[in-house]
Nucleic acid binder design. Structure first.
Lengths: 295, 295
DNA sequence: ACATATTGTCTCAAATAATTCTACAATAAT
DNA sequence: ATTATTGTAGAATTATTTGAGACAATATGT
């Protein structure tokens, strides 16, 4: 039996001056109001209302209880309001983790724009190219450039495709020749992500076939900008997201190699805890990013 | 959905540090606690608890809501406690209405004894021989000497038989003769209750038959003691409850007339509002009276 | 490293409760 | 007097809650 409903019915009867009136304002039947109040009285083992067929008056005890009920109901309402406001008005800190390159090149500006909209919100951005556990490390949102991964307790949302290209400086290409086929890459000096043994498998495909090449790396790094700068200096061929080398392509300090062969698609992924009710801070920011970086 | 139950479950989960622990201390299944909390979260559209398969932690919003919940639940409990104490410990005033004669002769002493047991209780005794509406005039309890009457919204409890006898002074009887049969009363001067036209019908019966006599009254009153005193002074034959004339019978200043003919039985009646939950003040006092005046 | 126990959650059938409909006696209002 | 409205009671329908069992995920103990 719902004590909360009973209390509401009881106070409403007192305020409306009758069961029928209370039922009308509450939008239920008279029986319901009646039983709700009777249940309350039975539970308390107290007569709260004195009914004389046509008139309803609170007993002294009922009046005392009414005062308290009004208080309690108001406090419940206040608590719910506070929660929903806490929820709809983003406050506090939003902890974000993102890879170095994307962070410095794009996310910084986006966040700056975002926080001007929500002055109550503080953002703590951690740039890190490690793979991290967002829950264990307490991040509200993690940004990754990767293939969408699935996991329980995490939702991974791909919001934009991230194109990657092979590229090298014109000086390097002049010196070592321009490769015309993926197989030729084994003869080149390649600059790749990650560790020597893990990131040295490049996958390229044209319309018909897929080629897996194990490249020799003169330099590998977990940071794209390092690879980009190395490529600019003519150290080799790098496989890099276009957003990192856009400027270099425009200035023609880097040139695309093997343009007819595509590496596997990556995406800009947003990773956040899977919850029944998504935090507003997170929801607002992901929406903002989705709008900002397309889809 | 019972909001208080949800709030209790939620607070218990936080306090016990888990759904299973909370379920154990609440004596319900894990499913129930789970659903209760989920319902609460759904209603508020907020994630209150962050669950990671083996650990439960409140979100910042959840923590804020928890504080308020604890408050609210405490207040609910306080309100219920206050009501039940207000109910079990009789305080305030008990308004009693009783007829003059019984009031002065017996009830006064009884009430004096009663209130010594309950120092918090004040009794307001109104002696009145009018027939009154206990609810309309706001009496908690009405004492009447009458035949039990039935009524909606009132309960009439006969707690003791009240014997009545015909009586007169020896001087009167010596002067006018001792009646041997009810019919002879029409020749006598009779002292009766009420008004001239309403109380002048006396009903007497022996084992075989019932006699209705319309008596001539030289004096009628709505007060038994007036009639008694008139009878003592030899003004006529009165029909009076024994408790009014006990002393006079003992002292032989009044003698019983027609002892083989009984008037209809009356009772000492307690009349109080019919309610699902009887007020403790009333309950205690009626129990006291029932114990005092027998049954 | 493996097996075991415990966690939060889900689903489904059974039990339980709530709500309305209807009827009724009592009482204001007209 | 008549009419309308009140609070209440019981039956029937509807909705909800409950717990058992199953499940995947994760600690814990050996």
């Amino acid at each position: 039996m719902d004590k909360f409903a009973s209390m509401r019915a009881f106070t409403q009867v007192i305020e409306s001056g009758g069961f029928a009136a209370a039922a009308r304002t509450m939008g239920v039947s008279r029986s319901t109001v009646n039983k709700l109040v009777i249940n309350l009285e039975d539970e308390l083992k107290v007569q709260l209302l004195q009914r004389s067929t046509r008139q309803v008056n609170p007993t002294p005890t009922g009046l005392a209880f009414y005062e308290r009920c009004v208080n309690i109901l108001a406090e419940v309402e206040a608590a719910e309001l506070a929660v929903s406001q806490l929820q709809t008005e983003p406050k506090g800190t939003l902890k974000i983790n993102a890879p170095m390159s994307f962070g410095t090149l794009h996310l910084g500006k986006a966040i700056a724009e975002f926080i001007t909209q929500y002055p109550e919100l503080q953002v703590q951005l951690t740039l890190d190219d490690r793979l991290i556990d967002p829950i264990a490390e307490g991040y509200d949102l993690t940004v990754r450039i990767s293939q969408p991964e699935t996991s329980p307790s995490l939702v991974c949302q791909a919001i934009a495709p991230v194109a990657r290209v092979l590229c090298a400086s014109s000086t390097y290409l002049a010196k070592h020749g321009v490769p015309q086929h993926p197989e030729e890459l084994t003869e080149h000096s390649c600059l790749h992500y990650g560790q020597i043994v893990t990131g040295n498998q490049w996958q390229l495909s044209d319309r018909e076939q897929e080629y897996r090449v194990t490249v020799k790396g003169t330099l590998c790094s977990n940071n794209g900008e390092v690879l980009r700068d190395a490529a600019v200096r003519g150290l080799g061929i790098a496989l890099l997201p276009t957003f990192i080398i856009q400027q270099e392509l425009d200035r023609e300090t880097l040139a695309i190699v093997l343009p007819n062969y595509q590496p596997p698609a990556l995406s800009l992924c947003l990773i956040y805890p899977l919850n029944r009710h998504l935090n507003t801070k997170i929801r607002l920011f992901t929406e903002f990013l989705r709008q900002k970086f397309g889809l």
